[in-house]
Simulated scan of single mutants.
Amino acid sequence: METDERADTQPVDSAGAKAAILQIVGNVLVARSLTIAAELGLADLVQAEPKSVMQLAQATGTHADSLYRLLRMLASYGVFAEDESGLVHSTPMASLMESDQPDSLRDLLRLGWQDIAWDTYRELPNTIRTGEPAFDEAFGATFFDYLAAHPEANASFDAAMEIFAGPENAVIAAAYDFGQFARIIDVGGGTGGLIEAILSAHPGVHG
């Protein structure tokens, strides 16, 4: 591990370091709040027009005051905005959680997939001690064995992978001469986004 040789000569800004660590810890709460907002579909509800917190609480079956606190925290990060009359507005960041956006992040952020991730993270101390996969410890099975036995989790995983890999598929299809092959098999191709992009870019190829 490399160390900074200046560490012994530079004054320590303990207050700044403490604030930075506390911010990192606090980001865990922000991430979880994003997950809740995505699961509730809050971005969809304010997409067309701003809504009051009471309207949002009624639409989502939630506690209005608690929902307001969550929205205010997210607004401090630019996710949603509140006007002087108390109405909640969409923002560019909130729009990324709208269900009908082509580049929507909602499926990645929703509770189904995020709960799997959080349960896995809880077992990270065991991974550090033993080197064994945290997922296996959390769920008693390997990752893909678990997905095979849980269709809903598998669907959440596929949706999350589409968010990550989707923008890359067309780039990959254009970057390599797949047209030299008569037939291509995408092993472990998930929902088939990559093979679809390849076949679209190279009409003479079968897959």
Score class of each variant (00 low, 15 high):
residue 75 A to R: 00
residue 76 S to V: 02
residue 77 Y to M: 05
residue 77 Y to L: 01
residue 78 G to W: 07
residue 79 V to G: 00
residue 82 E to K: 06
residue 82 E to S: 08
residue 83 D to K: 13
residue 84 E to R: 13
residue 86 G to L: 06
residue 87 L to W: 05
residue 87 L to Y: 08
residue 88 V to S: 00
residue 88 V to D: 00
residue 90 S to E: 11
residue 90 S to Q: 05
residue 90 S to P: 02
residue 90 S to Y: 04
residue 91 T to K: 03
residue 94 A to V: 04
residue 94 A to F: 03
residue 94 A to Q: 05
residue 95 S to W: 07
residue 96 L to I: 00
residue 97 M to W: 03
residue 98 E to T: 08
residue 98 E to S: 07
residue 99 S to H: 04
residue 99 S to T: 14
residue 101 Q to F: 07
residue 102 P to T: 02
residue 103 D to H: 15
residue 103 D to G: 09
residue 105 L to C: 08
residue 106 R to F: 02
residue 108 L to S: 13
residue 111 L to H: 04
residue 111 L to D: 07
residue 111 L to E: 03
residue 112 G to T: 12
residue 112 G to S: 08
residue 113 W to T: 00
residue 113 W to V: 05
residue 114 Q to C: 06
residue 116 I to V: 14
residue 117 A to M: 11
residue 118 W to C: 06
residue 119 D to L: 11
residue 120 T to L: 07
residue 121 Y to M: 14
residue 121 Y to C: 10
residue 121 Y to I: 12
residue 123 E to K: 13
residue 124 L to S: 09
residue 125 P to C: 12
residue 127 T to S: 10
residue 128 I to G: 01
residue 128 I to H: 06
residue 129 R to S: 06
residue 129 R to Q: 05
residue 129 R to P: 01
residue 130 T to V: 07
residue 134 A to R: 06
residue 136 D to T: 15
residue 137 E to K: 15
residue 137 E to D: 12
residue 139 F to N: 02
residue 140 G to K: 02
residue 140 G to V: 09
residue 141 A to N: 02
residue 142 T to N: 13
residue 142 T to R: 14
residue 143 F to S: 06
residue 145 D to T: 15
residue 147 L to A: 00
residue 149 A to Q: 08
residue 149 A to T: 04
residue 150 H to R: 10
residue 151 P to G: 01
residue 151 P to H: 04
residue 152 E to V: 12
residue 152 E to Q: 13
residue 153 A to H: 09
residue 153 A to V: 01
residue 153 A to W: 02
residue 154 N to I: 00
residue 155 A to F: 01
residue 155 A to D: 10
residue 155 A to L: 07
residue 157 F to M: 03
residue 158 D to R: 15
residue 159 A to Q: 09
residue 160 A to T: 15
residue 160 A to S: 15
residue 162 E to M: 12
residue 162 E to G: 15
residue 163 I to C: 09
residue 163 I to N: 01
residue 163 I to T: 10
residue 164 F to A: 13
residue 164 F to L: 13
residue 164 F to G: 03
residue 164 F to K: 13
residue 164 F to I: 15
residue 165 A to D: 07
residue 166 G to C: 09
residue 167 P to E: 00
residue 170 A to R: 13
residue 170 A to S: 11
residue 173 A to E: 12
residue 174 A to W: 06
residue 175 A to E: 15
residue 175 A to Q: 13
residue 176 Y to E: 11
residue 177 D to F: 06
residue 178 F to E: 01
residue 178 F to I: 04
residue 179 G to M: 11
residue 180 Q to L: 05
residue 180 Q to G: 09
residue 180 Q to R: 14
residue 182 A to I: 03
residue 183 R to N: 11
residue 184 I to S: 05
